[in-house]
């Protein structure tokens, strides 16, 4: 599903920063993997490249057989929308939209009609057990509920991969466990390739494979 070959990335600032120094990585369809690494190791950069949020300098990145390289902003936005579901540490829900409106948003950008959009979003919320919370705003919900809304939003477009950046980072241990169970369940039941970036060994331990990254290279 994901193929990285010799990915290099340098940030050109006042001092050029060589962050990724040749990343080779293969992730098969339906895998549940975690990426671990200390802060500054390049794991966020890797995640940004995987999520087509950032470009890379050297190498090749194939996502579901498509070469993702030097895309225009418009193409990148389109691929992000159709192939990738994001889950963030801080949920990143839009505060002035209700739960169901937040879930609808990716479909809005796909140009899906209002009624169809609403129906799909409600289905997704139902899976998360949030039907009763559909018309509530994010600040009226608990952290766990918000993260589940975010997961519903990530899933509503039926993406090829789910990228989760510290999905339990802002949650207490109990809800964190619940969210992890949810992700595991989605992975096993719907066979969605899931990549979790974390520095929590307990979270990493629940995945099929742990990829450790240090100083811009992968150490198995």
């Amino acid at each position: 599903m994901i193929q990285l070959k010799g990915i290099h990335k340098t940030y050109f600032g006042a001092q050029p920063l060589h962050v990724l120094k040749g990343i080779d990585l293969d992730i098969a369809e339906g895998e549940l993997v975690s990426i671990m690494g200390a802060s500054g190791s390049g794991k966020s950069t890797l995640l940004n490249i995987l999520g087509i949020l950032d470009d890379y300098d050297e190498g090749d990145y194939y996502l579901a057989g498509t070469l993702i390289k030097h895309l225009s902003e418009t193409r990148a936005a389109d691929y992000r929308n159709r192939m990738i579901g994001f889950i963030f540490q801080s949920f990143n829900l839009i505060a002035f939209k209700t739960a169901v409106e937040n879930v609808e948003l990716p479909l809005f950008y796909q140009g899906v009609g209002r009624r169809k959009r609403h129906q799909l979003a409600m289905e997704e919320l139902e899976k998360m057990g949030l039907t009763d919370w559909a018309t509530h705003y994010p600040n009226e919900m608990s952290g766990g509920q918000r993260q589940r809304v975010a997961i519903a939003r990530a899933l509503v477009t039926h993406p090829k991969i789910i990228l989760a950046d510290e999905p339990t980072g802002a949650l207490d241990s109990k809800t964190g466990v619940e969210v992890m169970q949810l992700l595991k369940k989605l992975n096993s039941e719907e066979r969605i390739t899931t990549i979790i970036v974390t520095h929590d060994p307990n979270v990493a331990a629940q995945t099929n494979r742990i990829i450790r990254i240090k100083d811009g290279v992968i150490e198995e």
Partner: peptide, 16 residues
């Protein structure tokens, strides 16, 4: 900024 960033992440094109 954050909101626009989120929109971009979930598929809003610059034109949108």
């Amino acid at each position: 900024t954050t909101e626009i960033g989120i929109r971009r992440a979930i598929g809003a094109t610059p034109r949108t």
